[in-house]
């Protein structure tokens, strides 16, 4: 795997508190990597270390194979932080122009026009940023992050406080960046639905430790442990339910009116459950293997931590 971002045993102490307790993860080139965790878990500290705003106490960090403390590497990183750091008294064009000059972009005017078009703000280019809505600000912050065409984008809660339509727009921009321009995106977010939709890999951090890390789909499959959901046309009679409960191989877990949830033992297929039910004249309307949602994975992780 070609690593765009790699962290190995990174530790950081702020005051007397160890905020990062030896975290390690790798983000491959072209990934949209979701970085999740509750408030105070260490997400923003990690991002600040990646951007060179904080120094790690120990550990190895590299972006595109280069030490993050070299200023040259900052030319290859784009960022959108919270708060966005845009100048309210300046127009969108002026904000982008300022950063374009900092990054020594050659054709500033053309680049700004392209970016404003990409984030659908061309018609508001001459308006002061102070008059923008939260969604527009986030889109402009994304445009600023892309002004020098960086290879890696570090985004801290880019859809926080944005209305649903704004979230869709921001999400679409991120997907275009990763898929069409092969950019690597590290996305820190509280929005689990958003991460589930767009991130191909995730890491869950809690109290400075990575609790879960890997490909989103395989993690969801792993967590679901073969849960099967059967939709029935009518409520299942109690006698059948009692019979089902006495069969551990089928593993009836829940009965929700017209829905039966099974955790079958190994070797049992969905078709086995269906045939068992049809034999008893239960009319089936649908059947599917259910994958765990990110929300379920997240709550499971938090429960595990509480138990510890």
């Amino acid at each position: 795997m070609n690593a765009a971002i790699s962290l190995e045993d990174v530790r950081k102490t702020l005051g007397n508190r160890e905020v990062l307790k030896g975290i390690s993860f790798t983000v491959a080139i072209g990934d949209i990597f979701g970085y999740l965790g509750p408030n105070g878990a260490g997400k923003t500290t990690t991002i600040r270390i990646l951007l060179g705003l904080l120094q790690a106490n120990s550990g190895n960090l590299a972006i595109m194979g280069q030490d993050i403390n070299r200023s040259a590497i900052r030319m290859r990183i784009g960022f959108a932080l919270d708060p966005d750091g845009l100048y309210d008294n300046m127009t969108a064009e002026e904000n982008l122009g300022f950063y374009a000059r900092i990054y020594r972009v050659s054709d500033v005017g053309q680049r700004i026009a392209e970016l404003l078009k990409a984030v659908d703000l061309s018609d508001r280019a001459q308006d002061k940023v102070g008059t923008y809505s939260k969604g527009m600000r986030q889109r402009l912050a994304l445009a600023r992050a892309m002004v020098h065409e960086p290879e890696v984008l570090v985004l801290d809660e880019p859809t926080a406080g944005v209305d649903p339509s704004g979230q869709i727009e921001v999400r679409q921009i991120m997907l275009n960046l990763a898929h069409q321009k092969n950019k690597t995106v590290l996305l820190s977010s509280h929005n689990l639905d958003e991460v589930q939709r767009i991130c191909n890999r995730i890491a869950l951090i809690d109290r400075g430790e990575i609790k879960l890390y890997g490909e989103t789909d395989s993690l969801r499959r792993g967590m679901s442990s073969g849960t099967v959901v059967i939709e029935t046309a009518s409520e299942v009679p109690q006698t059948i339910l009692d019979e089902l409960k006495s069969l551990p191989k089928l593993g009836l877990r829940e009965n929700q009116e017209k829905r039966l949830i099974f955790s079958p033992q190994e070797g049992m297929e969905v078709s086995d459950i269906i045939s068992w039910l049809t034999e008893r004249r239960v009319k089936i309307e649908g059947a599917a293997r259910k994958e765990a949602t990110l929300e379920e994975m997240y709550s499971a992780m938090l429960k595990e931590v509480e138990q510890i």
Binding site: L51, G52, L53, A72, M75, I77, G85, Y99, I102
Partner: peptide, 9 residues
């Protein structure tokens, strides 16, 4: 604003 500038080169 300052944080954003400090994250640039």
């Amino acid at each position: 604003n300052i944080t954003a500038l400090l994250a640039t080169p």
